[in-house]
Lab assay of single mutants.
Amino acid sequence: MDSLVVLVLCLSCLLLLSLWRQSSGRGKLPPGPTPLPVIGNILQIGIKDISKSLTNLSKVYGPVFTLYFGLKPIVVLHGYEAVKEALIDLGEEFSGRGIFPLAERANRGFGIVFSNGKKWKEIRRFSLMTLRNFGMGKRSIEDRVQEEARCLVEELRKTKASPCDPTFILGCAPCNVICSIIFHKRFDYKDQQFLNLMEKLNENIKILSSPWIQICNNFSPIIDYFPGTHNKLLKNVAFMKSYILEKVKEHQESMDMNNPQDFIDCFLMKMEKEKHNQPSEFTIESLENTAVDLFGAGTETTSTTLRYALLLLLKHPEVTAKVQEEIERVIGRNRSPCMQDRSHMPYTDAVVHEVQRYIDLLPTSLPHAVTCDIKFRNYLIPKGTTILISLTSVLHDNKEFPNPEMFDPHHFLDEGGNFKKSKYFMPFSAGKRICVGEALAGMELFLFLTSILQNFNLKSLVDPKNLDTTPVVNGFASVPPFYQLCFIPV
């Protein structure tokens, strides 16, 4: 009986604490739906499609509103004006990374994606500088992407125009580009180590996009005490870190300090320079996690976009025909596509942009946080508050993009057929937390897609009208449904 009384008292205290925290903070924060004790607004949000729920709530509470995930307040920004004001106009104040408990377990605050403060700034600055020195957006990395595009075309030829699921092959190409940047090595598509790495990356994007992960991140005790797919994700990350550590040891034994070959060499050189400046942010643990982040951000996002792009091109054969006509006119058949071609191919450029806009790969991006107490639109948001960005509300804005739910390359073309930029184009987020590999991803999408369409016609196994382009999961990332196609050599 005594234990029951204690339990009831504990629960009562928890409920009172929950109510007090919510009521004391709500006077400062933007308005929002009334949260339930302990669980907050979790029942009012469709976990399978958070973005749709945010759109519905914005119609009631406006472009800036507050939700509670458990006891934790989260300020939501919906629509271009609110997102721009926060991420661009007040970029420094909104540059923090929001709480992501599962990532905390995986990387302990290291790396480039989930770190904060001085650690994040130094690692991000170093990573950007190193990638630029190796030619991100310049010639040397373009050579690597072109080489991988040629290998991709050869792998597709091996399908002999038979029906195939493109998931694996389209994942190999961007993964190999990242391998060449980090390890100075590309792998054969049949290499077992490479296959294991690909498998872990593919599993992780599916797990991260599941409703279960949303629950884990908002009720963090689940991570330590409950079984579930989150444990598989943590094991996959541990596998990748151990693999990278092996490569780091190989580099330490063979590195030429006067001739760095890749990202690992550059990081080890930085560690050597910083060894007298303790404590340094440049450690082996930081290198492991930064490399894992580059793999995660640079492989599955690009391969998922490529997979979605081919599905949309199957669905819209008239678009595919126009792209192939432009390829034939500008590039021809006797040389590989290059980035200089893009400025002469406005329709193809528009298609690449429209694919990214339409699929809305990361509907709410990753959570941000404010780095200080900030007054925002007459609300006071306390330091450390998590900020949720609705990228969907920007990419699918119906004023900027008429009929935003329709796939239409003319969203990025003017009346004369010239490519038209849009400030609403934010597939990689915006501001200080914009994806480090934005330029690389854009290069890969253009070169891989043009190389495929230069060499193959795409054949659907069903009537294009019957192809479903609805994402199968739409949590962290929008993942396309399973499909097969035939690559018919031109």
Rank of each mutant, 00 (worst) to 15 (best):
residue 72 K to C: 04
residue 165 D to S: 04
residue 68 Y to V: 03
residue 151 C to Y: 14
residue 331 I to S: 05
residue 482 F to V: 14
residue 404 P to V: 04
residue 454 Q to L: 06
residue 27 G to A: 15
residue 329 R to E: 12
residue 369 A to G: 05
residue 371 T to D: 06
residue 187 F to V: 03
residue 228 G to D: 02
residue 385 T to A: 04
residue 200 K to P: 02
residue 108 R to M: 07
residue 59 K to G: 07
residue 490 V to A: 14
residue 122 E to F: 09
residue 239 F to R: 08
residue 296 G to Y: 15
residue 183 F to V: 04
residue 189 Y to G: 03
residue 273 K to P: 05
residue 76 V to E: 00
residue 256 D to V: 14
residue 330 V to M: 08
residue 108 R to F: 14
residue 176 N to R: 01
residue 93 E to M: 07
residue 46 G to S: 09
residue 64 V to R: 01
residue 399 K to A: 15
residue 217 N to K: 12
residue 139 R to P: 14
residue 30 P to I: 01
residue 469 T to L: 11
residue 221 P to C: 12
residue 3 S to R: 01
residue 391 L to G: 12
residue 372 C to S: 15
residue 124 R to V: 04
residue 67 L to P: 00
residue 467 L to Q: 05
residue 392 T to V: 05
residue 153 V to L: 05
residue 314 L to D: 01
residue 263 F to S: 04
residue 472 V to E: 14
residue 305 T to S: 10
residue 279 P to A: 14
residue 98 G to L: 06
residue 2 D to E: 12
residue 72 K to M: 06
residue 26 R to L: 13
residue 196 N to S: 13
residue 361 L to M: 14
residue 257 M to E: 14
residue 264 I to Y: 03
residue 286 S to E: 12
residue 374 I to R: 03
residue 464 P to H: 08
residue 210 S to L: 06
residue 286 S to N: 10
residue 97 R to M: 07
residue 213 I to M: 15
residue 194 F to L: 12
residue 93 E to H: 12
residue 41 N to V: 00
residue 90 L to P: 04
residue 117 G to N: 11
residue 259 N to F: 08
residue 350 A to K: 01
residue 204 N to Y: 08
residue 99 I to W: 14
residue 284 I to V: 13
residue 144 R to Y: 07
residue 71 L to N: 14
residue 207 I to M: 11
residue 362 L to N: 05
residue 475 G to N: 12
residue 478 S to M: 08
residue 228 G to Y: 06
residue 261 Q to A: 13
residue 117 G to Q: 08
residue 182 I to L: 14
residue 35 P to C: 13
residue 326 E to T: 01
residue 477 A to V: 14
residue 23 S to P: 15
residue 472 V to H: 10
residue 258 N to W: 13
residue 141 I to E: 03
residue 417 G to F: 10
residue 479 V to S: 11
residue 88 I to K: 05
residue 137 G to M: 07
residue 230 H to Y: 10
residue 113 V to Y: 15
residue 485 L to E: 00
residue 200 K to T: 10
residue 371 T to Y: 04
residue 265 D to W: 02
residue 63 P to E: 09
residue 165 D to G: 00
residue 62 G to A: 01
residue 305 T to L: 09
residue 259 N to M: 06
residue 198 M to A: 08
residue 424 Y to P: 04
residue 373 D to V: 01
residue 50 I to S: 07
residue 22 Q to C: 10
residue 428 F to P: 06
residue 247 K to W: 07
residue 180 S to L: 04
residue 26 R to K: 15
residue 43 L to W: 09
residue 356 Q to S: 08
residue 378 N to I: 01
residue 281 E to D: 14
residue 395 L to D: 15
residue 29 L to D: 02
residue 212 W to D: 02
residue 338 C to N: 11
residue 440 L to Y: 02
residue 289 N to E: 13
residue 314 L to C: 09
residue 480 P to H: 02
residue 161 A to M: 15
residue 189 Y to V: 05
residue 119 K to L: 10
residue 202 N to C: 07
residue 8 V to R: 00
residue 50 I to D: 02
residue 243 Y to V: 14
residue 140 S to C: 10
residue 420 K to S: 06
residue 429 S to D: 05
residue 49 D to M: 03
residue 43 L to M: 13
residue 212 W to A: 07
residue 274 E to S: 13
residue 183 F to A: 03
residue 305 T to H: 05
residue 154 E to Y: 04
residue 16 L to M: 13
residue 269 M to K: 15
residue 280 S to R: 08
residue 212 W to P: 02
residue 393 S to P: 08
residue 356 Q to V: 11
residue 339 M to F: 08
residue 166 P to L: 00
residue 10 C to F: 14
residue 111 G to R: 05
residue 144 R to E: 08
residue 156 L to N: 00
residue 98 G to R: 08
residue 437 G to D: 09
residue 151 C to R: 08
residue 264 I to K: 03
residue 167 T to C: 08
residue 133 N to F: 11
residue 473 V to L: 14
residue 317 P to D: 06
residue 438 E to H: 06
residue 307 R to T: 06
residue 195 L to C: 14
residue 327 I to K: 00
residue 386 T to P: 11
residue 220 S to H: 07
residue 182 I to E: 01
residue 219 F to Q: 02
residue 68 Y to M: 07
residue 300 E to I: 11
residue 427 P to V: 07
residue 249 K to G: 07
residue 244 I to M: 11
residue 82 A to S: 07
residue 344 H to G: 10
residue 289 N to Y: 08
residue 311 L to Q: 01
residue 463 D to F: 02
residue 365 S to V: 10
residue 481 P to G: 07
residue 371 T to I: 10
residue 291 A to N: 01
residue 19 L to I: 12
residue 276 H to N: 10
residue 332 G to E: 04
residue 360 D to R: 09
residue 109 G to L: 10
residue 379 Y to A: 05
residue 479 V to K: 13
residue 243 Y to E: 05
residue 9 L to H: 00
residue 35 P to I: 01
residue 307 R to W: 01
residue 50 I to Y: 14
residue 289 N to K: 06
residue 96 G to H: 13
residue 175 C to Q: 04
residue 122 E to Y: 06
residue 149 A to H: 00
residue 155 E to D: 04
residue 58 S to M: 04
residue 313 L to I: 02
residue 201 L to R: 03
residue 294 L to F: 12
residue 14 L to Q: 04
residue 352 V to G: 02
residue 285 E to M: 07
residue 357 R to G: 00
residue 113 V to T: 14
residue 278 Q to T: 14
residue 67 L to T: 14
residue 87 L to G: 08
residue 159 T to G: 05
residue 21 R to C: 09
residue 62 G to M: 01
residue 359 I to G: 07
residue 228 G to H: 06
residue 21 R to A: 11
residue 102 L to F: 10
residue 350 A to G: 04
residue 112 I to Q: 09
residue 295 F to L: 14
residue 97 R to L: 05
residue 275 K to S: 13
residue 114 F to K: 09
residue 448 F to D: 02
residue 316 H to C: 04
residue 290 T to L: 14
residue 6 V to H: 05
residue 444 E to K: 04
residue 134 F to E: 14
residue 99 I to R: 15
residue 106 A to N: 11
residue 417 G to V: 04
residue 202 N to H: 13
residue 414 D to A: 06
residue 85 E to G: 09
residue 71 L to E: 15
residue 459 K to V: 06
residue 406 M to E: 13
residue 131 L to G: 05
residue 342 R to L: 13
residue 200 K to G: 07
residue 482 F to K: 14
residue 9 L to D: 00
residue 179 C to G: 05
residue 8 V to L: 15
residue 117 G to E: 09
residue 396 H to Y: 15
residue 128 L to R: 13
residue 213 I to L: 13
residue 230 H to E: 04
residue 146 Q to M: 11
residue 334 N to Q: 15
residue 171 G to C: 12
residue 226 F to I: 11
residue 53 S to R: 12
residue 167 T to G: 09
residue 399 K to E: 15
residue 358 Y to D: 01
residue 389 I to R: 01
residue 5 V to W: 14
residue 123 I to M: 15
residue 167 T to P: 01
residue 181 I to A: 04
residue 321 A to H: 13
residue 392 T to I: 02
residue 479 V to Q: 09
residue 446 F to Y: 06
residue 414 D to I: 02
